[in-house]
C-alpha cells in the first residue's frame, strides 16, 4: 500500500538518490515504516509473553476490531488530508446505526433496503457538513462540532436511548463471518485500503485531494475546484462512518444508539499515528492499516497481560508513546545514514 504525500505527487516528487542499498533499506527509508515496525515488534512481544495471544479466537477478534478501526480512521483521514477535520464522525455513526435499526426493527424492512438507506444517511450527513463548510467558509472544526450536537440529538430523539434488537440474523454475516478464518470485516478493510491507496497514487481525483490539503491556494491556482474536493471528502467521511456503523450493527446483531460515542479519539489516534498529517496533504494507507492494528494490539495486550486495572490508562499511554518513538528513532537513523552516505560520496 502506497505512502502518498502532496510533495511526492504534486509539488516535488520525493526521489531518493541513495539507491543500491537493497530493497530492505529502501523499505526502511519509507516514512510510514515506523508504525509498521512498531506494530510488528508489539505483535512479537505479545505473542512471546502471553499464552492466549495466538489462539484463533483472539486473532479473529483482533483482526475484526482492527478492520472496524480502519473504517473509523478513514472517516477522519479523508478530511484530515484536505486540512480539515470531522468531529461529528461518531454522531454520523450513531445516526446510521439508528437509521439501520429503525428501518430493520421498527419498520421491519429487509437489510437490502435498510443498508442503502443507512449509507445514504451517512453520506447525507457528510454532505450536510461539506456544504456548510464550503458555503460559509467557516472552519470545519466549528461546523462539525455543531453538527455533532445535531446528529447526537437526532440519535437520542429518534431512539430515546433504546437499542434496536430485532435485527435479522442474516445481517450479522458480515460482522461475524469469516473466510478461511479471516473476518469479512478485515477483508473489507484491506480491500478498501487498497482502493484508497490506488486512488491517491494513480488517479487525478486522489492527487487533487492531496493537492488541496497540501496547499489550498496553489491548488486553486492550478485550476483545482477545491470546494468540490472539500465537499466530496466530507461525503466520503460520512460514507466511511456509515460503513463502520453498519459493520458494528452487523457484529452486534443489535443497533445500539450509543454507537460512535468513543470514535473521536480512535479516529484521530489511528489516523495520525498512521501517518496522516494534521496539516493535510499527506496520508499513508499502509501506516493507517498498521496503526489500526497497533491500537487494537495494545488494548488487547494489556488485558492479555492482566495489568492492574487502576493503571491501565497509564500503560496504554506509555505503549503508544513507545510505539511512536520507534518512528522517530527510525527517522534519526535514516538521516544519519544519509549524512554518512553524502560524506562518503564527497570524500570519494
Amino acid at each position: 500500500m502506497a505512502e502518498v504525500n502532496v510533495n511526492q505527487n504534486v509539488v516535488s516528487p520525493k526521489k531518493n538518490s541513495n539507491s543500491g542499498t537493497g530493497a530492505l533499506a529502501k523499505l526502511f527509508r519509507r516514512n510510514d515504516m515506523g508504525v509498521v515496525i512498531a506494530t510488528a515488534l508489539l505483535f512479537l512481544i505479545f505473542a512471546l509473553v502471553t499464552d492466549s495471544f495466538f489462539t484463533r479466537y483472539n486473532l479473529f477478534n483482533i483482526s475484526r476490531t482492527a478492520g472496524l478501526y480502519v473504517f473509523i480512521a478513514m472517516g477522519q483521514m479523508i478530511v484530515l488530508v484536505i486540512g480539515g477535520m470531522n468531529l461529528s464522525l461518531g454522531g454520523i455513526g450513531g445516526l446510521v446505526v439508528v437509521a439501520a435499526g429503525y428501518t430493520m426493527d421498527s419498520m421491519g424492512w429487509s437489510p437490502w433496503i435498510s443498508v442503502p438507506i443507512a449509507l445514504a444517511v451517512g453520506m447525507l450527513a457528510g454532505a450536510f457538513n461539506g456544504i456548510i463548510i464550503v458555503k460559509s467558509k467557516i472552519n470545519s472544526f466549528i461546523i462539525t462540532l455543531a453538527s455533532l450536537f445535531i446528529f447526537t440529538g437526532l440519535v437520542t430523539g429518534i431512539s430515546q436511548g433504546f437499542p434496536y434488537t430485532e435485527i435479522p440474523k442474516s445481517f450479522t454475516l458480515m460482522g461475524r463471518g469469516s473466510l478461511l478464518g479471516v473476518p469479512y470485516t478485515f477483508i473489507l478493510a484491506i480491500v478498501t485500503l487498497l482502493i484508497m491507496a490506488y486512488v491517491f497514487k494513480f488517479t487525478v481525483i486522489g492527487r487533487r485531494i492531496l493537492a488541496t490539503g497540501g496547499n489550498l491556494e496553489a491548488a486553486q491556482l492550478s485550476g483545482i475546484r477545491t470546494d468540490r474536493i472539500v465537499f466530496l471528502c466530507h461525503v466520503l467521511s460520512g460514507l466511511f462512518g456509515a460503513i463502520a456503523g453498519l459493520l458494528w450493527v452487523s457484529r452486534m446483531g443489535s443497533a445500539q444508539p450509543a454507537t460512535g460515542s468513543d470514535w473521536l479519539i480512535i479516529s484521530f489516534a489511528v489516523a495520525i499515528i498512521g501517518g496522516t498529517a494534521l496539516t493535510g496533504g499527506e496520508a499513508s494507507m499502509l501506516a493507517l492499516f498498521a496503526s489500526a492494528i497497533l491500537l487494537t494490539l495494545i488494548k488487547n495486550g494489556l488485558i492479555m497481560l492482566n495489568v492492574n486495572v487502576y493503571f491501565e490508562q497509564t500503560f496504554l499511554g506509555l505503549i503508544i508513546l513507545l510505539a511512536v518513538s520507534i518512528d522517530r528513532i527510525r527517522a534519526m537513523l535514516h538521516s544519519s545514514t544519509r549524512k554518512f552516505g553524502r560524506r562518503d560520496a564527497t570524500e570519494a
Partner: peptide
C-alpha cells in the same frame, strides 16, 4: 481477571472480548 474502564457498549464489547480471549 478484573477489567474496568468501560463507558460505552463498544468499549465494553472490545474489552470483554479481549478478556474472554485471554482466558478462553
Amino acid at each position: 481477571q478484573e477489567i474496568s474502564g468501560m463507558t460505552s457498549v463498544e468499549e465494553a464489547v472490545e474489552k470483554i472480548g479481549n478478556a474472554l480471549s485471554a482466558n478462553i
